[in-house]
């Protein structure tokens, strides 16, 4: 599970209210919701992102509300994965549960500039900054988490397992 893309960088404490403002939470359709991804933090996000880009956050990324809409709009926007110094715990769970790859690695974050080309290996917990020619090692995930991400989320994973039990 290798993800390669250009970095879109943000600071510390990016909260779920700026990732997807509550005024849009009455929208049911993920594609429609994703038009407002990052709107209150970076209104240019929608125009500058390209498929496969990697969001780079500081510490406590995804803090605040438990809204799963936040990782959903990031995923639907075509972001391949999110790396940060640390994640708020509900966002962390939600990202895994909906199959959005994430990785914590403070060392890598310190060096990244907007537009750097990054390569992230979720299974190995390896991050490479191709632009700067640097490599970093993060904590990888246990196999069951990798499996959840691979299946595209917890429900697919659970449904498949339930199917195989029957």
């Amino acid at each position: 599970m290798l993800y390669k893309g250009k970095a879109i960088t943000y600071g510390d404490n990016v909260d779920t209210d700026v990732i997807i403002p509550a005024r849009y939470l009455n929208i049911d359709d993920p594609e429609e919701l994703a038009k407002h991804c990052m709107e209150d933090l970076d209104e240019n996000f929608i125009n500058k992102k390209t498929k496969g880009d990697i969001i780079v956050g500081g510490k406590n990324f995804g803090c605040g509300s438990s809204r799963e809409h936040a990782p959903i709009v990031i995923k639907v926007s075509g972001i391949s994965c999110v790396i940060a110094s640390s994640f708020a715990r509900i966002f962390y769970r939600n990202a895994i549960n909906i199959g959005l790859p994430i990785l914590e690695c403070p060392e890598a974050i310190d060096d990244v500039d907007e537009g750097d080309i990054l390569e992230v290996d979720i299974e190995q917990g390896a991050i490479q900054n191709i632009t700067k020619n640097k490599r970093y090692k993060a904590q990888g995930f246990p196999p069951f988490i990798i499996e959840i991400i691979k299946k595209g989320g917890l429900m697919n994973y659970a449904a498949e397992r339930a199917g195989s039990i029957e």
Partner: peptide
Amino acid sequence: DSHTCTYGALGAFSTGVGSTD
């Protein structure tokens, strides 16, 4: 809902999760 942690005031363990959980 992230504020599910409120019930700790009564000596319960309570925590916020997302919709899939």
